[in-house]
Amino acid sequence: MTTLDKFSLMPVSSPVSLPVSRQTKLMAKRRLLQMHYEAGVGHIGGNLSSLDALLVLLNEFVTPGDELILSKGHSAGALYVALWSCGRLTEESLKSFHQDATLLAGHPPAGRIDGIPFATGSLGHGTSLAAGIALGARFQSTGNQVFCVTSDGEWQEGSTWEALIFACHHKLKNLKIFVDHNELQGFGDTTSVASMAPLAARIEGFNAHVSEIDGHDLEALRTAANLECDTVHVIIMNTVKGSGVSFMENQMKWHYLPLNDDQYEAAMLELEAP
């Protein structure tokens, strides 16, 4: 019996219907870990910190015509799993993650998958792209909403602030920016590398409407996504890198490392429903 066969004895549930529940979260986390484990790739920590928001947005808020931009493209796995959870990606496609001839690359691909409007991965692009789509929707009176999920380290990119200035100036109330504020970046924590604290206050200084929430609280995510503002709404999601897997939580190394066999087994056991 191979390792893969062994863990296939703990099957991942099939995609769910609305709304996102605690069981949905667990199922999605398990499928995310399985996908990364089978592909032997990392970036797991930031995937787990943003997964809950992506699940809620894609299952409950992104309706036809709306768009979601994952600006933190290194959380592509979470995006794929969230799209799978609402039936927009197949189980078969998830199995191709990170393989040759796949469309499910390590960062969201360009123009080939419904639900992924733009290829991202280089940080600091997504907020501007989302602002452009939001402005286009306004010009054409479509009423469509645009959701953008950024990292927190990404706010060190000057272009992200350019985008914020633009979005606030144009009062893009159909744009909601969710910041995955897990406080860890590539080679340190955000306050020790290049602090922007207090991030919420600084963003608010540009006249955005800012909310701070627990980014793993489903109800808080819903409330934030539902809130109607007269300008762009920036939601600072206080999150935990590696959320839900005790030995991954708040550990920078899980920005990079793939799971070995023992770690995978331990993580999956933690994510079993009680």
Binding site: L129, A134, Q140, F166
Partner: peptide
């Protein structure tokens, strides 16, 4: 009119906004 947008001194944002606008068919 309003379709003439001075994006300010922020060319990186202007280009990505242009991409987003184009994505909507404009």
């Amino acid at each position: 009119g309003s379709r003439f947008v001075n994006a300010g001194v922020a060319e990186q944002n202007m280009i990505s906004v242009a991409a987003g606008l184009s994505y909507t068919g404009l």
